[in-house]
Design a protein around this nucleic acid. Structure first.
Lengths: 200, 200
DNA sequence: ATAATAGTGGCACTCGGTGCCGAATGGAAG
DNA sequence: CTTCCATTCGGCACCGAGTGCCACTATTAT
């Protein structure tokens, strides 16, 4: 049980039978075991002991399960960027932030790897991820916009968001192939390799 | 009727009732008129005078309709990159290729704009586009890999593919907002603005 | 107890997509 | 002309995701 669950006050009405976190965990287990396409929503609902209809009150779609609480990570990235010293060049601020954003405590490396394997290799999930990526890019674009004193929805900040995401994603793919490499370091390398191209 | 249709030899068996190009056109018209989500596959099949089952022999999914024959454009990009002088720096080769790849003869500007509006604004289509983007990035990564003398599936070429796509996509979004700007010029600007960030 | 409130889940429905199979079509061979 | 063959067509039945509706249930407040 998470802190969010245990510390919630007692509102009126029936207590929920499960939680997003629990469903996400159960779903992820099934997906890893049998493959995303081989698991139906009914399977997940049954495994969680809830009705199929109820599942869709916790998650808008089966595709959203593997992401878990991505919003929380996003808030983390956002608040980290807020604290970056104004003296740090934009490029380095982004490079470091994106890199650190993908450093996870050592305990759940295996699970995170399997989650990313699902998200980056299953076509349905790859497609669905665009929605999450949009929010991610927006955080970067906002920051870049502030730094460059331009609206976040203008060409340069938007492009920077796209580029940072692109670097992050390709580093993730590389990370899945190279068992031994650290993800933050791969992302850092990605930023540097990208710069080389622009400098050449 | 396209050249591809009229010039095809006569194979044995029944002649097809329609073509991918025709279906794509009909679908696009309906999507523009009523919105992607408000048009069912039955609607399209009926409008084309074929059965629903037959529709799925021409296109694997409703989502594939708006793209039309993207493969042809991709081949064009690929062969253009093949002809680029080795003296041209990688950055400039990419900037120019991506930019020119998005210059279209003046006749169907309106239609192309509406198509891109669909593809970039409808969530389902945005998500589905990832599949097409993958092929696009592969062309760029192949080229970059050859230039950098690295396998196309290694970190740097892959990252370059992601970045070029990112620049292209954000330029497209900008283009949809700014009625008057030329798409190739916006892409060119995107590349330059991106470089500025890396140079700082 | 009773009312108010919030979660549950069955039912029926829509829509995209697939497997199966027989019918329709048109060229080639006799 | 007839037969054969390749190929397309499309109906039918089915699956799974996702939704609207509504009655039911558990819990707290009065």
């Amino acid at each position: 049980m998470t802190i969010a669950e245990s510390s919630r006050s007692s509102p009126r009405g029936r207590t929920p039978l499960t939680s997003k976190a629990t469903l996400s965990r159960i779903g992820l287990e099934l997906f890893i075991e049998r493959g995303f396409d081989q698991v139906t929503v009914d399977d997940i609902a049954e495994a969680a002991g809830i009705g199929r209809r109820t599942f869709f009150r916790y998650f808008p779609s089966k595709n959203d399960l593997p992401w878990g609480d991505f919003e929380a990570l996003l808030d983390q990235l956002e608040s980290h960027l807020d604290t970056v010293d104004h003296e740090v060049p934009l490029f380095d601020a982004l490079r470091t932030a994106v890199s650190e954003f993908n450093r996870f405590p050592g305990d759940d490396h295996g699970l995170h790897r399997k989650r990313m394997e699902l998200l980056l290799k299953n076509p349905t999930l790859v497609a669905h991820s665009t929605i999450r990526y949009e929010a991610w890019r927006a955080v970067i674009a906002d920051f870049a916009g502030r730094r460059l004193d331009k609206p976040a929805d203008h060409l340069q900040p938007k492009t920077i968001g796209q580029i940072c995401l692109g670097i992050s994603v390709s580093a993730h793919y590389e990370w899945l192939e190279q068992e031994d490499q650290s993800l933050p370091e791969l992302i850092d390398s990605g930023f540097r390799l990208a710069r080389d191209v622009f400098l050449r």
